[in-house]
Design a protein around this nucleic acid. Sequence first.
DNA 1: ATGCTGACTATGT
DNA 2: TACATAGCCAGCA
Length: 118
Amino acid sequence: VSAVSRTRIYSVIARVPKGRVATYGQIARLAGLPNHARLVGYALSALDDESRVPWHRVVNASGRISPRSDESPMAGVQRFLLESEGVRFDAGGRIPLRRFQWRPRRFPSSRPPPRFRA
DNA sequence: ATGCTGACTATGT
DNA sequence: TACATAGCCAGCA
């Protein structure tokens, strides 16, 4: 992935608020890279441990934590981090996107409280 | 150039 | 809801 694309991808992910999640495809679109969902995952795998990009808030379109090809423990860490922020998983290990998916606002004036469970 | 791979998705059964 | 398929496209061999 080109350096410029990675930069755009990371800057979008950095906007995802705590307690919310975004999908790979969503990040790609917002970064101006439609149809490049896979690049988002590719860029994340290249992320260095020192960065402050909230990588754990990116999940796949079915609301699940995407399985790593290498069976690394990062997937488990991701779930832990999300639950720590209040993101709930259902019995099938999926996040109800209707409730937790990030809906970016055109006008950054007001902010979305991560509310759930009326 | 060609073919394969992958932290993906939309669609059909 | 769950698989299978077929698009997708930047890297790399």
